[in-house]
Structures are given as structure tokens and as C-alpha cells.
Write a protein that binds this DNA or RNA. Structure first.
Ligand SMILES: [Zn+2]
Ligand SMILES: [Zn+2]
Ligand SMILES: [Zn+2]
Ligand SMILES: [Zn+2]
Lengths: 169, 169
DNA sequence: AGCTGAACGTAATGCTATAACAAATCCTTG
DNA sequence: CAAGGATTTGTTATAGCATTACGTTCAGCT
């Protein structure tokens, strides 16, 4: 197992112009590789759901995904979307954003992680940031109160560099 | 204005046996004082809503609060609860927990703050922890990606000291 | 008393999520 | 290949969370 130090391709990429075709196909490839290792199946609905999430760096609501799936011939009932999304999340291929009640594709699915999320309030794009140092401090603060942290939600709302440069308030 | 350094009474109190009567009446007093300063009105529905939240250290869903209010002669439609809760939150007397879609009374309403929340998965109690150091690290991590954090949600799920001592898994 | 804006109440609706069950599909194993 | 079991997909129905719209009441002021 060569699980080397986590090296995100570029946490800020989501906010900058980039070769998104490459960006998303790399994520899809990594996802397939990961599922192969896990012995889980990337069925058509699941694959399509992941592709839909990967089209943008935004988070999408389950019903938004569902509309897309239904339009493409898949089932049109909520569980169709929720099941696919739940599968992706539980296999580390997507993340759920609590603040938004929405889902975003994971851009580093090869690595097991619970990132901190950076959500731009102007362009709605979402990026993943290294959460380890944040979690460490949080665990310390909690430990001072005798509390043992098992999972933590860390989601930041603010302004990305591109939007700030464009003079968004 | 003697807004001295923030000195939480005891962040872990929520998880420990304590004089809750004093605990909640102090919070209510502080809330009244704060609203007086702000020139906002603590009407009967609002006051009762705060009292209901203060009865326990758990977070309550809006409909749970609404049931209580309705049973006591207030309106029985969702906006009644949502408006009161929204008022409390926006005036710093209660917090909203994103993970739980629920609300909890603030225990230090005298001080303007966005705490980190510690949510015990065993007893469901919620405590507020000092978030400043956590936010500082988060801001740094975000800044490295060119992102400016404006607001952050920090919610930890885990096990409180009391539950851990009782041998909860 | 009369005006005005805040607060309250209700009806209606929309959005998010899950439970329960039936049909189809995959996968193993004899 | 056939039989059987587990997984996946689909549907119906329902639960849970939240807001819009609109009319009425009430505190505070002139
Ligand atoms: Zn991209
Ligand atoms: Zn942006
Ligand atoms: Zn207490
Ligand atoms: Zn506990």
C-alpha cells in the first residue's frame, strides 16, 4: 500500500479556469479504480450520477440530479437519485454539503478523506481544502471539554479568488 | 461597553450534571439584557420559544418546538415557529445546527459568537466550544487557496465525557 | 382617535428525504 | 445451463423541513 502523503492536485483549481475535461475524466478514472479495489459496481445510474456531478464544480441538490437522470431514461422517483448519491458518498466518490443540502463530486477519490469545503457565495463553486490541521485544533478544543470528536463538518462560506478579483462584493 | 475577553462559563457544562435551573435562567436573563440593548422585543412567542429551547441542552427541530407552542395556545402553523426561531438566531440567542436541521439555545448570549458545536451521538446534548482557534486555522488553509472565509460551519459529532464514562460505544 | 410598521396567524405550497414493496438483474454453484 | 440468493432498480406513498403570500392584530407615535 503506497498511501503516501496526501497531495491534492490543486485545491484551488475548482475556482480557476482549467482544463475541466481532464479534471473530470481524471476523477472518473480514479473513481473506477477505487471501486475496482473495493469490489463495488459502478452501474449505469451510478456512473451517470457521478458524471453529472462532475460536469461542474458546483454542489447539486438530489432533485436537480434526479431531473437529469429522469430526462435520460432512468427512474423519476426520488430514491433513484438518493440511492445513487448515497452510494457515491459512502464509497468516497462524492461529498455531501450540509449547509446546502447538496452533493458534489469528490476530486480526489483515490484518497480517503473528509475535507473542509470552501463554498464561494458568488459563483457557487465548491473546493476541497485540507482539513487535517483544522480537525486537529478542533479535537484539541473538544478534548479540553472532555469530548471525543468522531466526525466533523467543516464548511466555509466566502469569496473565491476569481470572484474577489472580479470585484464581487 | 465592557466587552471583555470571552470567558465561557464552562463549555462542558452541558454534558455534566449541573444546576440547570440556574443555567437556563441565567441564559434567559442575559438574553433579555441583550435584547434591551438592541432595542428588540422579546414577545410572548419568542420568549416561550427560547424557554422551550432552554429546557434541555438538546437541539430541537422547528416542528417539535411548534407542537409545544401550539399546545400552549400559540399559532399552529410552521411560520410561527420558524419566525420565532429565526428571530432568536438572528439576535444571537440561539444557534442553528446544520447537521441536525435543528436549533439550540445559546448559553452565552451576552457575547457575539459563532461557536463550534459538540454534538454527543449518545445523549444528543449539544455544547458550544470556542471556535476562534479552529477558524483561524481554517482561514489560513483557505487563504492558501486564495479563498476568503466569511462564515464557517463547524460541527463535531462524537462522544461526551459522561457518555464515554458510562461506557457508551 | 388615527396612522404606521412590526408582529402574529392561517392557508397553501415547495423542497428534502425515507419507508415499503415489487420487478429486474447479477452472480454463484450444483 | 438451471436454481437460488443477493444486489440493484423502479414505483408508490409518506414523512420531515422550510417558505411564500396574505390578512389581522397590536404596540408606539402623532
Ligand atoms: Zn474541473
Ligand atoms: Zn467564486
Ligand atoms: Zn444547563
Ligand atoms: Zn453524551
Amino acid at each position: 500500500m503506497s498511501d503516501r502523503l496526501y497531495q491534492p492536485s490543486d485545491p484551488a483549481a475548482a475556482f480557476q479556469p482549467h482544463d475541466h475535461r481532464h479534471c473530470s475524466s481524471a476523477a472518473l478514472d480514479a473513481a473506477e479504480a477505487r471501486l475496482a479495489r473495493q469490489g463495488a459496481r459502478l452501474t449505469p445510474v451510478r456512473r451517470r450520477t457521478l458524471e453529472i456531478l462532475l460536469e461542474s464544480h458546483r454542489a447539486m441538490g438530489a432533485y436537480e440530479v434526479l431531473d437529469r437522470l429522469a430526462a435520460e431514461g432512468f427512474g423519476r422517483q426520488p430514491p433513484v437519485a438518493y440511492r445513487a448519491l448515497e452510494f457515491l458518498v459512502s464509497h468516497g466518490l462524492a461529498h455531501r454539503l450540509q449547509r446546502l443540502n447538496a452533493f458534489a463530486a469528490c476530486l480526489n477519490p483515490g484518497h480517503d478523506h473528509n475535507p473542509a469545503f470552501l463554498i464561494c457565495r458568488s459563483c457557487d463553486r465548491v473546493a476541497e481544502a485540507e482539513a487535517a490541521p483544522v480537525r486537529a485544533v478542533l479535537s484539541d478544543v473538544a478534548a479540553a471539554a472532555g469530548f471525543r470528536v468522531e466526525r466533523a463538518t467543516i464548511e466555509a462560506l466566502g469569496l473565491c479568488a476569481s470572484c474577489a478579483a472580479e470585484g464581487a462584493a
